[in-house]
Amino acid sequence: MTPRLEDVTPANFDAAIGIRIHPDQEHAVQPVVRSLAEAYVHPAGVAWPRLIVDDDRPVGFLMAFLDIDWYGDGSVRRSGLWRLNIAADAQRRGYGRFAVDAVADLVRGRGGTEMYVCWHPGAGGPEGFYLGLGFRPTGEVTEGETVGVRRV
C-alpha cells in the first residue's frame, strides 16, 4: 500500500464523486459531492479536500477543516477531519488510518496540538474506528454527532 493525497481537479473530479461507501454507512457520512460543494462555499483555506489514491486507483476522499471558528463567536478555533469516505471495496486496508494521519500531520505542521472529528453515533457508525485511532469524546454534541479530539 502506497497511498497518496491528490488535489481534486477537473481531471479527477468524476473519480472523486464516484467514491461509494457501504450502503449501510450512508446515514453516517455525506457523499463526496456534498463535501466538495461545502468546500466551495467556505472561505479559502477553511476546507482542505483531497482524493486518496493508491497505485492510481481512487480509494477514498477526505476533507479537513482548518482553523475554524468553532462556536461562531471567535472564542475557540479548531482544526481536524471533516469528512472521510473510503470506498466500500477499499475498507479495512489502512486507508482510513492513512487519512487520519495525513490530517494530523497537516494540523501539526500548522502549529496545532489537537485535531477534532465528529461522528454519527450508533450502529454502523465510525465510533469504534475513531476511538481505535486515539480520539476521545469531548462531551460535546454538534448537529447530533459526537465530537472527538486527539493529540497530534
Rank of each mutant, 00 (worst) to 15 (best):
M1S: 15
T2M: 13
D7Y: 09
V8R: 04
A11R: 13
G18Q: 11
I19D: 00
R20L: 10
H22I: 09
P23F: 02
D24V: 12
Q25C: 10
Q25D: 06
Q25R: 12
Q25H: 12
E26T: 15
E26S: 15
H27D: 09
A28N: 14
Q30G: 15
S35E: 05
A37C: 08
E38Q: 14
E38D: 14
A39H: 01
V41F: 04
H42V: 11
H42G: 01
H42P: 02
H42A: 11
H42Y: 07
P43Y: 01
G45F: 01
V46P: 01
A47C: 14
W48K: 08
W48Y: 14
P49N: 05
P49R: 03
L51C: 05
L51M: 06
I52N: 02
V53E: 03
D54C: 15
D56F: 01
D56Q: 12
P58T: 13
F61M: 01
F61W: 00
L66V: 11
L66K: 06
L66H: 06
D67Q: 11
D69L: 07
G72N: 06
G72R: 06
G72K: 08
G72T: 07
S75N: 01
V76M: 11
V76P: 00
V76Y: 04
R78I: 05
R78F: 02
S79A: 14
G80W: 00
L81I: 07
W82P: 01
N85W: 00
I86D: 01
A87I: 10
D89E: 15
D89V: 09
A90Y: 01
G94C: 07
G94I: 08
R97C: 09
R97V: 11
V100I: 13
A102H: 06
V103P: 00
L106H: 05
L106N: 03
G109C: 10
R110L: 12
G111R: 08
T113C: 05
T113G: 06
W119Y: 13
G122P: 11
G122N: 09
A123H: 10
G125F: 03
G125R: 05
G125I: 08
P126A: 15
F129P: 02
F129G: 03
Y130M: 02
L131G: 05
G132I: 06
L133N: 07
P137S: 12
T138V: 11
T138F: 04
G139S: 11
T142V: 13
T142F: 08
G144A: 10
E145F: 06
R150A: 05
R151F: 06
